[in-house]
Every structure is written in structure tokens, then in C-alpha cells.
Design a protein around this nucleic acid. Structure first.
Length: 299
DNA sequence: TTCCAGGAATCAA
DNA sequence: TTGATTCATGGA
């Protein structure tokens, strides 16, 4: 796949998908039930090469997943020109959003609650090994299981899910699986709803609040106006946009709703990844005197 | 050993 | 409506 401005490595390990494994300079996972290996030639405009073991007659499933047709420049052009976001974009040039399967994405983020990303990954793999269908993969591949369908997960009892190390999240996932398996929640039909309507449907699930709903809307449904506000983003907003101040949650939400434009979710991903990769220590132990100037809000 | 993690539900005030 | 507490687990 020819691409421009596409940083495959950053995209696959930026906390939006949990099953990609770095292997011998490439990345391996199972996407829509197919084992696949991805490699990118050096640079963020090097073509991406995909390998499967089962011959593919067409690749639209992967192009859609990777969003290779998106013109990144047209998205970045809608960003406000403030210093923190500009720095994040420069540091993470080529970072993209994926478009994942809604059920897999919803499950992953139900499991994400107060877990570190590495633990979410472990938990997801336990679940796949326990309930996922085996897929054709190179010999010895330990993650050669599809992500289990809602029906597969609903067939497990809570104790089996707890054995996947998901703790108090087990009943949340099981309830969601039952809702989808029994047709009480039609994840495909959410595509036809407005972002706000779809958010309400997702948040009706026990264990799914605003943040998890926004992750699913952004990473599975391509709703780029959804802005997941997690602990990292709140640290970023406080540290970089409101130094020496303590804005109320309402003020922060209003800022998020109005500042970042129609692709706020994309902006969020840049701020999130930049903070985790480059600003981790600074955010964990913020200096008493902020080094950055207050935000300019012109666009 | 202690802290805390891509939260959300619950309950008291 | 707001703030504190609880939930399970394991990496750092």
C-alpha cells in the first residue's frame, strides 16, 4: 500500500488498538479474523507491505482498518495553531487513527478501566486465547486467535472471564456481550446515528461512561469529533493549556468542545501519544513553574 | 512495599 | 450536584 505521512509504528502502539506485536522489525496481529504481518519501508512515506497466510482476493478490509486513503494534511489543516498541539503534531508526524471492529474496540476499552496499556494487552490476549477461534498463522505464533465474537464471550460465565485477569470488569464485558449477542444493542446500526445518539446508546451499557464511549466512537466508528478525555489528556490540558490554574471540569469540557475543531479526536490522539512518549516524566512530576507560555486561541 | 493505571458505579453529604 | 470510596490486578 503506497502511503504518505503514515507512521505505522506510532499508529499501532498509540493506545488505540491492543493486539499488535512487534516482531522482527514488523508488526503482527489478527484483523477481522485474519493473521496479518505489516512492514513499512523506512520513513513515514515508505509503502506498507502486508502479508497474510491465506491468499486475499481483495484488501479493502485492511485499507479501511488502516485508513490508508485518508489525506492526513487535510485533517491537520483544521487544527488550531496553538503551541502544545503544534509541538505534538511535529513530534508525532504521521500518527493516524485506525478504524477497528466496533465489538473488539468496545471490549478492549471496557477492559481498559484503571489498567495500564500493557495490562490491557495481556487481558485481551487471555480473552482471545480463552474464547477466540484459532486462525491460520505461522507455527508457534502465540496470539493466533481471532478476537472472540459477542456470542463467544456471552457463552462464558463470569468466573471464566475473571480467569482472564479482568477483575471487576468481567461483569461489564459479559453484560455488553449479552446485549450484543441478543440483539438488544446493534453495533452496526450505530453507524446511522449522530455521534451524540450513538454515545447515549453506548453509555447505556453498564461500565461504559463518557470516556470509553468516546474511545469506541473515535477508534471504531470514525467519529473524529469524539474526544476521549482520560487521565493523560486531562494532565496535558491542565499542564500545557492551563498552567498554574485549576480549571473546573466544566471549564475543561467547554474548552475541549470548542477549541480543537471538527477533528478534535485526531488532535486528542496527537496530544495523548506525544504526552506518553515524550512528556511522561514531566507530566508525572510537573515543575512548580511551567516552562510553556499560555495558549493562544487564534486559529 | 507502595503507588497507580487510556474509569465507572455507588453512596454520602 | 459534588466528592470520596470501591472495584481487581500487576507493572514500575
Amino acid at each position: 500500500m503506497p502511503v504518505t505521512d503514515y507512521d505505522l509504528a506510532a499508529t499501532l502502539c498509540s493506545g488505540q488498538a491492543f493486539r499488535w506485536q512487534p516482531v522482527n522489525g514488523g508488526w503482527e496481529s489478527v484483523v477481522h479474523g485474519r493473521w496479518v504481518r505489516l512492514e513499512q519501508n523506512p520513513g513515514i512515506s515508505g509503502p506498507i507491505q502486508a502479508t497474510t497466510l491465506v491468499r486475499q482476493t481483495e484488501w479493502s478490509w485492511l485499507e479501511t482498518y488502516l485508513q490508508t486513503e485518508i489525506q492526513l494534511g487535510s485533517i491537520l489543516a483544521t487544527f488550531p495553531t496553538d503551541v502544545p498541539l503544534t509541538e505534538a503534531v511535529m513530534a508525532c508526524r504521521g500518527l493516524r487513527l485506525l478504524q477497528q471492529d466496533p465489538w473488539e474496540c468496545l471490549s478492549g476499552f471496557i477492559l481498559s478501566s484503571t489498567k495500564q496499556i500493557v495490562q490491557i494487552r495481556q487481558c485481551v490476549e487471555h480473552l482471545c486465547r480463552r474464547a477466540g477461534r484459532p486462525v491460520t498463522a505461522p507455527a508457534g505464533t502465540p496470539w493466533a486467535f481471532a478476537f472472540p465474537s459477542a456470542v463467544d464471550v456471552a457463552a462464558l460465565d463470569e468466573s471464566a472471564l475473571r480467569e482472564c485477569r479482568m477483575g471487576f470488569r468481567a461483569p461489564y464485558l459479559r453484560n455488553a456481550a449479552c446485549a450484543v449477542a441478543e440483539g438488544r444493542l446493534d453495533l452496526e446500526s450505530l453507524r446511522t446515528l449522530s455521534t451524540e445518539e450513538a454515545r447515549v446508546r453506548l453509555m447505556a451499557l453498564h461500565g461504559v461512561g463518557r470516556k470509553i464511549a468516546d474511545c469506541v466512537l473515535l477508534f471504531a466508528y470514525g467519529r473524529q469529533d469524539a474526544f476521549p478525555a482520560d487521565v493523560w489528556i486531562l494532565k496535558v490540558l491542565n499542564h500545557l493549556y492551563f498552567p498554574n490554574r485549576k480549571p473546573s471540569p466544566q471549564r475543561l469540557q467547554r474548552f475541549v468542545d470548542t477549541h480543537f475543531g471538527p477533528n478534535a479526536g485526531y488532535a486528542q490522539q496527537y496530544l495523548f501519544h506525544h504526552a506518553r512518549v515524550h512528556l511522561g516524566a514531566a507530566l508525572a512530576h510537573p515543575p512548580s513553574r511551567p516552562k510553556r507560555s499560555p495558549i493562544r486561541t487564534s486559529r
